[in-house]
């Protein structure tokens, strides 16, 4: 599609990678926005509304990079695709749950984003490298916020600990789905575009385990040959477009207004 695309780089793989990241951000951004007006504390209500807008802003960055590779505008990609064409991980599609679940999910996601964006700011694909570095600056503050909540709520009171542990039990196997391999990953690794999900997951695990343990939260994990290994079944499928009714409902909500007035301008 794009005429001046560097010929040595795998265009299909880059398209797949960008779309997975764009869909993750769009969907989680929408889930975060569902707290607007409902968060347990006014300040967190506003904070989550801000984060929601930031995440959707990040999806716009990735969709914009996709435009020359797909010939579609960001609006077309966000609002005209069926949920069966989304490649977000299932993790971000689950309902927002209670505030403990939202906090834990946001933390696990932010930690993964930091690891991924840090790696991508050294990518061999220029546009990706630049955008990653820019988003990373903002993402650092998301992580500070969600990590701050996890560290405080993990062992604040009996109730907060119980709810946070339940959230971790639910969210952790889902979160592993963020690192489900994508099509063309070997090519992306070989050409220095992307270091691969195995590497990222390993780095993510090290960070997550130390923060959650510090907050008195347990993870189903074992140390094997000096490496941390999850002892649970990851929830996969999202990257292969296998989704649940949760995403269908969410996409219906997101696209409702757009579909009422196709091509409308405001």
């Amino acid at each position: 599609m794009q005429t001046n695309f560097p010929s040595q780089l795998p265009q299909d793989g880059i398209r797949t990678l960008l779309l997975a990241m764009a869909d993750d951000e769009l969907v989680l951004g929408h889930r975060d926005s569902e707290w607007t007006g409902y968060a347990p504390i006014l300040e967190e209500d506003i904070a989550f509304s801000n984060i929601a807008q930031d995440e959707i802003g990040h999806s716009l960055v990735w969709f914009t990079l996709l435009t020359p590779l797909t010939g579609l505008t960001p609006d077309q990609m966000a609002f005209e695709r069926s949920y069966e064409e989304f490649t977000c991980c299932r993790f971000v599609t689950h309902p927002k749950g209670d505030f403990a679940y939202t906090t834990v999910r946001q933390y696990l996601f932010d930690e993964a984003e930091r690891v991924r964006l840090t790696a991508l700011s050294g990518s061999s694909y220029g546009p990706l490298k630049e955008a990653a570095a820019k988003i990373l600056r903002e993402e650092a503050y998301h992580l500070m916020h969600s990590k701050g909540l996890v560290e405080r709520l993990g062992d604040a009171t009996e109730e907060s600990h119980r709810r946070m542990q339940a959230a971790v039990d639910l969210a952790f196997p889902q979160a592993l789905g963020m690192f489900e391999p994508i099509d063309g990953e070997a090519e992306l690794q070989k050409t220095g575009v992307f270091p691969g999900n195995v590497t990222l997951e390993h780095e993510w695990l090290n960070n997550v385990v130390s923060v959650l343990r510090g907050a008195s939260l347990k993870l189903p994990i074992q140390q094997m040959n000096g490496k941390l290994k999850p002892q649970c079944k990851p929830e996969l499928g999202g990257r292969k477009k296998s989704h649940t009714a949760h995403l269908q409902q969410l996409v219906d909500d997101v696209q409702l207004v757009y579909r009422m007035a196709p091509g409308g301008k405001w």
Partner: peptide, 9 residues
């Protein structure tokens, strides 16, 4: 946390 929330606010 107050600084962070103040930043958002």
């Amino acid at each position: 946390m107050a600084l962070q929330l103040a930043r958002d606010q």
